[in-house]
Design a binder for these strands. Sequence first.
DNA 1: TCTTGACTTGGAGCGTACTCCAAGTTATAT
DNA 2: ATATAACTTGGAGTACGCTCCAAGTCAAGA
Lengths: 139, 139
Amino acid sequence: MGDIPVTVSSIKQAAEFTGLSEDTIRYYEKIGLLPYADRKASGHRTYSKHQLQGMIFLTRLKATGMTLEEMKRFRMLYEKGEASLPERVSILMEHKNRIQNEIDRLLETQKMIDYKIDNYKEVLVNPDLNNKWKSPYAD
Amino acid sequence: MGDIPVTVSSIKQAAEFTGLSEDTIRYYEKIGLLPYADRKASGHRTYSKHQLQGMIFLTRLKATGMTLEEMKRFRMLYEKGEASLPERVSILMEHKNRIQNEIDRLLETQKMIDYKIDNYKEVLVNPDLNNKWKSPYAD
DNA sequence: TCTTGACTTGGAGCGTACTCCAAGTTATAT
DNA sequence: ATATAACTTGGAGTACGCTCCAAGTCAAGA
């Protein structure tokens, strides 16, 4: 006995679930980032829970700076099956490293902003400081 | 006695120092994100250390997701002088919050990637798991 | 049956942030 | 003096990631 395809969602529901717009989902399919979706007899797209979860994962990758091209490459590897697992692992690890670098940069900038806010607050309390003492980033 | 203008850098040196391209610096000036730069008699742009530091600060804001429009607004306030200090502080604090949210999202995604990599590694060790047990994000 | 809303396709258009180019001027090294 | 590099301007073009539209089909309730 074969699997029963559990294709439950319309594109509208998929959009609600993933936070993507319907247009964006169609666009992703058009550029090959998402596989050609199953259609009902009417031609309307239909999505399984599994596919929706895959889409959510893609949105996480996108939200953390992966380009559509890289995501597409990742999906292509997935389609190739198990033999591509090591390469998929290395793509994910590389992306994780990029995320770490991004976090480091964000933390540094937060510090810089704190420093600048402190300067601003000192000037607010004692405006004379504004011209007498200029720190880096004090402008 | 007036200040001696310490305008030392060419646009090329400014580009090297800030990591922006020369074209980008000219573009920023064109859209009003950077003030109209001082020129030498020849018409060539010239930048002071102070201006270079301001540019570096802008690159930090940009690298952490601030749009050129927001940065422009920040600079406009700066031009208005001290009266705009409270508003500048609030812009910076808001941006700092956005950075924090971004950091949180990045950390979450890192966790998700770790989870997925772990699944992949289990499948690599025992390929039978690939079809028998599908976790979320396992595709 | 009729109407309203959801969906389809292909393609055009858009916002952001550059990036490149042409034609001309200025600076510098030999 | 001359060649080469650096710079100027205005404007056109590009890359990415959507977003919108027109014209038509399909679905579901009154």
